[in-house]
Amino acid sequence: MIEVREDWCKGCNICIDRCPVDALEESDILNRRGIRPPKLKEKNDCNFCRLCELICPDLAITVFPDEKEKKPVKKTLLTPVGGKTK
């Protein structure tokens, strides 16, 4: 599940372009600036890699791992440096 702060999004669509599993698309609603913020596709392979969250220039996207839906995916990196702390 992703959450987008619609009034912060400027519509650069980098998240859609960079998504490794192509899970995002433009939504139908227009925000205050007149652009269409991203949303998850209805059928998607999102594995919560959090690239869109880390790469968003306006810090508008937040990714929450879905607790209910169990998908057969590899364990993903949930911390930006791969969970390794010195």
């Binding site: 009034d7 880390l54 968003c56 220039p57 306006d58 810090l59 930006p80 702390t85």
Partner: peptide
């Protein structure tokens, strides 16, 4: 939101700095 243009890289650097400070 920032004054940066659409597609600018400055916001990304700011976010990376936040993550580093948080770590």
């Amino acid at each position: 939101p920032t004054i940066f243009c659409n597609g600018c890289g400055h916001g990304v650097v700011l976010e990376y700095t936040f993550w580093a400070l948080e770590e």
